[in-house]
Design a protein around this nucleic acid. Structure first.
Lengths: 337, 337
DNA sequence: CGAATTTTCGGAAACGTTTCCGAAGAAAAC
DNA sequence: GTTTTCTTCGGAAACGTTTCCGAAAATTCG
């Protein structure tokens, strides 16, 4: 359709290869011819066809990004981190929503590979381990995002969810709470699993007995928070504090509390996880564990392009970032009766 | 790297073209040879290289998506709409954040075209009209998203922002409010412009005098809502109702109101725009104009692939969707003193 | 059974690049 | 002035497909 390298070559009266070299190499072409060529390029608005180029160089300067749901504020912030950093390095990104569905994940991976993306950044469900083994075996560059897998063969960037859960819970315990509940996240994810582990560890460490804490299984959504809070209202010996696996969940719980007329944090303290934008908007402002979301995305692409450039010379790095407790208004000391 | 069509051809003892036909056409190849080939394909895990294919067919089955900020819940919902619909139709999508920066927009468009995406869905700033003319002239398939441009040569899907602003304002007026303020959106966007128009129209229609309404210029962010509300507190003859150009802005205003101790909606009614998820989470629940976000994305890709298939046989369609007033808790009748 | 038609397939060009190799000419060395 | 070395360039192969064209084989028809 557009203007091609042949057109430029013809116009400049040189061969195709000379034009190519003029555009890529810095040597091996005369100064005046280069100038002439570049001028033509400018005039004609020539842009090399990356597909043709990719065919021979095996590099498309495109990376794939697979996340469960890009409308989830947690992932959308990661996505902008990925996109911005990628663009700065000359890459562009194809994204796919997986809905945490292993079937869609598999499909997306296959599609992306067929499209010859240079590498993949993915936040996969635990069911997709087999698929990951394939990717590894084929030597396809991959960095795991947010969700760790056991294999040490693949690069990853993730947060230390276990100590994050531990610190969140400890915050509650140190305030004096002794009846705790954890709203868990999607059990298919490693991070939900780890946060729960952290909760349990803290609770054990403080010597709480089995009837002093409980775990409500849920997922990361607002609806889950609403539902779980409703459930909580029905039990006797109501807890004085909640550790929600996500801010969305926590915000849902706060809304439900408001509607049920239970005062936050006076009657029940709530701590969330992630520090998404809503967290500081909701009243009371949500105490939460802040994830370095933007940074997660950034580091992921750093790791990936390093791998793309070095090949597999270096062993894969596994970055684990720490979260940060940000205390706002939704947690306080328990009421003394 | 992987297994190529030649390998399959060799294994099957047929020519390359036969393998190609076996995979694409439904005729022109014997039933038994086809079966043999397909079996090999399965065994060897062969997937055609889309880049090579795209080179000859000029179709990559990839579309570009340019939005100002994918972490904005409005756009992220649109994004899942386009991604899901695109995937259903066999396309994948490359996305770019433009930050409403014409420079980045230009860059992204050039990059996307070099990558030979089949078409483009974009939500561009008004400054990029010149660029659009180029795209049109080059016959590059484009559908304008959410933001209209004057040209009728390009397909578009957008909401009727003017009547949306009109209806929102009318809602306030019908409740009895007579001192109104509009928090405007990013002036670089057409939609902000149109909503403001709608506000003005309604306000004139109800015969408000110049000192009974005002417009505070801002943008679509939470911070803008907070800042503008602070500004509002300083004026005498405080308005009794606000029409905010976006929910984010409205939510910011509600938070600021909460902090300043002004009761919503008793002292000031607020209506937002978009109906993003936060709107129903915040207390009081936000009255707002619901945009069919997911649908916007869906229709955009429908329009685009229709164009991709038909070529420019059909004239470009311009879909304009209507918003819907959803009344929640943040608006009520004005207090009578 | 021969001719006409249909089915099934292979060869080759093409898509737009990059890159290897070698050649021609200019500059440097002797 | 001849040989050697650089510099600058062109030719051609290659990347992995699709698709056009034509040929061989198989089928149908009279």
């Amino acid at each position: 359709m557009g203007v091609t390298i042949k057109d430029i070559a013809k116009l400049a009266g040189v061969s195709v290869s000379t034009v190519s070299r003029a555009m890529n190499d810095t040597f091996d072409v005369g100064a005046d011819t280069r100038k002439r060529i570049m001028q033509l390029v400018e005039e004609q608005g020539y842009r090399p066809n990356n597909m043709a180029r990719g065919l021979v160089t095996q590099k498309l300067y495109t990376i794939g990004l697979i996340v469960p749901d890009i409308s989830n504020p947690f992932f959308s912030e990661i996505a902008v981190g990925v996109e911005k950093r990628a663009r700065a390095l000359g890459y562009s990104v194809i994204f796919c929503n997986s809905d945490n569905d292993p079937e869609i994940e598999r499909e997306s991976i296959a599609m992306l590979r067929g499209k010859m993306v240079d590498g993949l950044i993915a936040s996969l469900s635990r069911e997709s381990f087999a698929e990951l083994a394939n990717i590894e075996a084929a030597g396809f560059p991959l960095v795991q995002l947010d969700r760790s897998i056991e294999s040490t063969k693949t690069a990853s960037v993730l947060v230390d969810n276990q100590t994050s859960g531990y610190i969140a819970t400890k915050h509650l315990l140190e305030l004096g709470h002794r009846r705790l509940i954890h709203f868990s996240g999607n059990h298919a994810t490693q991070s939900a699993h780890d946060r729960k582990k952290g909760f349990e560890k803290a609770v054990r460490e403080y010597g709480l007995s089995d009837n002093e804490f409980a775990i409500f299984e849920g997922n990361f959504t607002v609806e889950s928070g609403i539902r779980l809070f409703g459930q909580l209202l029905k039990i006797d010996n109501r807890p004085t504090a909640i550790f929600a696996a996500s801010d969305l969940q926590a915000v849902g719980a706060i809304a439900a509390a408001f509607d049920a007329g239970v005062a936050i944090p006076e009657e029940i303290s709530i701590i969330g996880h992630d520090d998404v934008p809503i967290a500081s908007l909701v009243r009371p402002r949500l105490t939460t564990m802040a994830q370095p979301k933007y940074k997660l995305g950034e580091i992921a692409v750093n790791l990936l392009v390093r791998r793309l450039i070095d090949g597999s010379a270096q062993p894969p790095e596994n970055h684990v970032l720490q979260t940060e407790l940000v205390v706002r208004q939704s947690t306080t000391v328990p009421r003394t009766y």
